[in-house]
């Protein structure tokens, strides 16, 4: 009887999705609800504190700095990691380009490295010593060496550089996949009508590759707002001078793990969740993904 039930076509689909349901309940819904509850508590003293953690966050200048740093980083990655890879991908996709596969593989290489290795490489390339690669370049163009990781703008540039190094190739692949799904007849027709390459890029490639752009935008927002390890590696830990490298997740880590203020840290986590959700909703609204689904 039980066996027949288990094997019936009505029950089988539920058996198939069961592992997902269990993991979602245990490892997503439970921790998120727990996080919400903890964010209203002082965990060390084991008492309810109402909205105190949130009101404290509102006036916490370091947290504000962390949010601004994360937003700044996210915007930087959006500006650098969407238009350029899109342009590079359409050039690589052009019939005039030779050895495109070779270049594609090379550009993918950095994505294979872990953040630990990538961060360590960049920290050492931008070391303070006058013999480090970055300072050698400065000396070569007649400037004096600088402490790259001590200044807010130089360290911001280094974090963006790591992001570009690791993700330019991957985003090129995304855009290439998108571009290759566009029928070539469109370009042929356009070029018979006398459209220039730039017009073809603007009027055919860009609009038709939009689903890919939306995808890349979504994952960049997600990754940008939750960035932590890059900064953790470059600054050799979670403490950067004047918190120039502190991000939202860095602050969550500092409060929850380093200072053991679990309730406060969970409030930071909830704020991060809301940030990601809101930015994603705005993005989906602006790019019109909702309208498409209504049709």
């Amino acid at each position: 009887m039980l066996k027949k039930f288990f094997y019936s076509q009505k029950i089988a689909p539920y058996v198939f999705v069961l592992p997902f349901v269990i993991t979602v309940l245990l490892f997503w819904i439970a921790p998120i609800s727990n996080g919400v509850l903890l964010s209203f508590q002082d965990v060390l003293k084991d008492e309810w504190v109402g909205t105190k953690n949130y009101t404290r966050l509102l006036s916490d200048k370091i947290f504000l700095k962390a949010i601004l740093n994360s937003l700044k980083y996210m915007l930087g990655t959006l500006v650098l990691l969407i238009p350029f890879p899109m342009l590079f991908a359409s050039l690589l996709n052009s019939k005039l380009m030779v050895k495109a596969d070779f270049f594609k593989s090379i550009y993918f290489l950095p994505a294979l490295t872990s953040v630990v290795v990538a961060g360590t490489i960049f920290r050492l390339m931008f070391g303070e010593a006058s013999g480090s690669l970055a300072n050698q370049v400065l000396l070569a163009i007649g400037q004096s060496p600088i402490k790259w990781l001590k200044g807010p703008w130089t360290s911001y540039a280094i974090l963006l550089l790591i992001a570009c190094w690791r993700w330019t190739g991957v985003n090129i692949l995304y855009f290439l996949a998108g571009l290759q799904s566009i029928p070539t007849e469109l370009y042929e027709a356009a070029s018979i009508d006398g459209a220039s390459k730039w017009q073809q890029f603007k009027n055919i490639s860009m609009p038709l590759v939009k689903p890919t752009t939306v995808y890349v935008l979504t994952i960049s927002i997600y990754a940008g707002l939750s960035m932590f390890l890059e900064s953790y590696m470059v600054f050799k830990g979670n403490n950067s001078p004047n918190n120039i490298g502190l991000t939202i997740v860095g602050y969550l880590y500092r409060q929850g793990i380093e200072k053991r203020a679990m309730g406060y840290a969970c409030a930071v986590g909830i704020v991060l969740l809301l940030c990601v959700m809101i930015v994603n909703l705005i993005q989906l609204k602006v790019t019109g993904t909702f309208d498409k689904e209504e049709k």
């Binding site: 998120i32 996080g35 707002l225 932590f228 997740v249 990601v276």
Partner: peptide, 8 residues
């Protein structure tokens, strides 16, 4: 992001 559920 995983980081949201990381602490709980």
């Amino acid at each position: 992001p995983l980081e949201v559920v990381m602490l709980p």
